[in-house]
């Protein structure tokens, strides 16, 4: 197995139970190699746990499995969109699609103090960052960074539209090489919040535009670059011409 060239391994489909062989350079180097989601060290082997395509990154040397899934498992540092379901004492219970509802303290907002709290209703949407997300505790959200500054998180306006998209599509959209959102933005100005839990909130000038943008984004799930460019071009033509 070690004789096979490395290029045949990356971007290939692996199933759970298969073992992965690293490239010769990574095997021989002394640097720490990072194993991402879908890979597990078992004795001296690296085993695959999720079905998908093996991807790699060079610095630091990282390997992971690109898996198609829809259920979100909270991870620290993710920005997610949640629905406020309840107010318990000083904090809100927010539904983010995980096994437990996350808690969001009412003073974890920019400029909030004990005497000056934001006015959040049940049913509002919040764009927040996961502060704590471990397997043993309920997840905790915040809407500020560690210095208490406003970083674009917070309550989302009710004038937009919220829709769900599978998680691999979210990662594709957030990839810097993906030009879909930028090209759509050239046709129509819009505001967007992409949550790593599969939820996207979008707001354009009118409801009609918002809905068309949302449908274009969900439709691009299985498209490659050329098809996405064609979709955007069609979009721009429609908006410009009619």
């Amino acid at each position: 197995m070690a004789e096979k060239s490395f290029s045949t391994h990356v971007n290939q489909i692996y199933l759970p139970g298969d073992s992965v062989v690293l490239s010769k350079t990574d095997e021989n180097s002394n640097a720490k190699i990072v194993l991402g989601p879908g890979l597990r060290k078992y004795g001296k082997q690296i085993l695959v746990t999720k079905p998908g395509i093996l991807r790699t990154k060079s610095s630091p040397p990282t390997y992971w499995i690109d898996c198609h899934h829809r259920r979100y498992v909270p991870a620290r540092g993710d920005d997610v969109i949640g629905v406020v379901t309840n107010k318990v004492g000083e904090s809100y219970k927010v539904y983010i699609g995980s096994s437990e509802e996350a808690s969001l303290s009412s003073i974890a907002f920019p400029g909030a103090t004990k005497k000056n709290k934001p006015n959040i209703q049940i049913g509002d949407l919040v764009f927040a960052k996961l502060l704590i997300a471990s397997a043993d505790m309920e997840p905790e959200l915040v809407c500020v960074n560690s210095l208490g500054e406003n970083v674009g998180l917070g309550v989302l306006s009710t004038n937009g539209f919220l829709f769900t998209v599978p998680l691999h599509h979210i990662r594709k959209l957030l990839n810097p090489e993906c030009t879909l959102l930028k090209s759509l933005g050239k046709a129509l100005p819009f505001e967007i919040a992409v949550g790593m839990n599969g939820k996207i909130w979008i707001k354009a000038k009118s409801v009609k535009q918002t809905i068309t943008l949302a449908r274009a984004i969900s439709m691009s799930e299985h498209m490659n670059k050329e098809e996405m460019n064609q979709l955007c071009k069609k979009f721009i033509d429609r908006q410009a011409g009619f």
């Binding site: 690293l22 021989n28 002394n30 720490k32 990072v34 991402g36 395509i53 991807r55 990839n175 490659n224």
Partner: peptide
């Protein structure tokens, strides 16, 4: 189904990342 050639840069790591060292090989 056309597989995406887009390489995903900053992936979200849902599972705790495991570091492996040279002992593996």
């Amino acid at each position: 189904r056309v597989y995406e050639e887009i390489d995903i840069g900053n992936d979200s790591e849902e599972e705790p990342v495991m570091l492996i060292t040279k002992e593996l090989t």
